[in-house]
Nucleic acid binder design. Sequence first.
DNA 1: CCTAATTCGTTGACCCGTCAACTAATAATT
DNA 2: AATTATTAGTTGACGGGTCAACGAATTAGG
Lengths: 142, 142
Amino acid sequence: MSEVQPDEHKIFELLQALHKEIGPKFERCAGMTPTRFRLLQELYRISEISQISLQKLLEIDAAAVTRHLKGLEENGMIARRNNPADNRVTLVSLTGQGREHINAYRENKTEFISDLLNGFNEQERTVLAEMLTRLQYNINLL
Amino acid sequence: MSEVQPDEHKIFELLQALHKEIGPKFERCAGMTPTRFRLLQELYRISEISQISLQKLLEIDAAAVTRHLKGLEENGMIARRNNPADNRVTLVSLTGQGREHINAYRENKTEFISDLLNGFNEQERTVLAEMLTRLQYNINLL
DNA sequence: CCTAATTCGTTGACCCGTCAACTAATAATT
DNA sequence: AATTATTAGTTGACGGGTCAACGAATTAGG
């Protein structure tokens, strides 16, 4: 029942190692960090949204959102304005440049992921996705 | 050939999300960060080692090693001494307390991983390990 | 032998995430 | 209506990683 194969520890280490590789490589392909790319993608879909909602979508800390937006604003990727109906909330939207970036790099991201999964046939991809989902489920119980 | 299923993007996001969950949960079980635990485990096996070798084992930046060791030294987990045969190198070893920590928490780590993989039978674990290895291989080509 | 190159470790600056403390604005309660 | 609670966002400090610059020790070469 509670026999532990060496495989288990290896899986743990693979997950760690994998993550460390993915970030930098992704950035080289997508022109920005995974999180920032995801942020822009959400804005692309949604057009305008409050920071708090964005934060919940991205599932990162509010402080991180603030700082990402600061950076992206300086790069001209996003714009912020006050919500006239509620002066606590800041509404965020893509600029033309941000939109362009997504359009220009969406393909790269897809190719990146495609390369990552190179050699996986459809069935294997399905199995992998399912297994990762199970891991996520398990970890949420801890 | 280059058809991209939504699954692919989902796998990418699962990997990211998974990693974010694992760190903090692991720490709750093992009494320290995954990297630091790994560091102590290596010392446990090897008894005494130079920082540079440790760095290569852990595959993290030398600066990170320096800082982890600083922290672990303050916690009384490890000790450092100069290599009299080469004054550039610092030799690192576990203290009794560090050894105790590993002994006390090794079981917890194993159980953590076991819980993470709860519901995976042996064959599934093998498949998962193999798939993650393939991902790692793929990413190293990028 | 003395100078040049390499190696080891540290430090500082940065990125990305966390949490905790705080301000400002709105909502709720009394 | 005034006070209290809640909400949105920012900021500072911290942990963990990166890279780049540096000093000290050692090794290699002219």
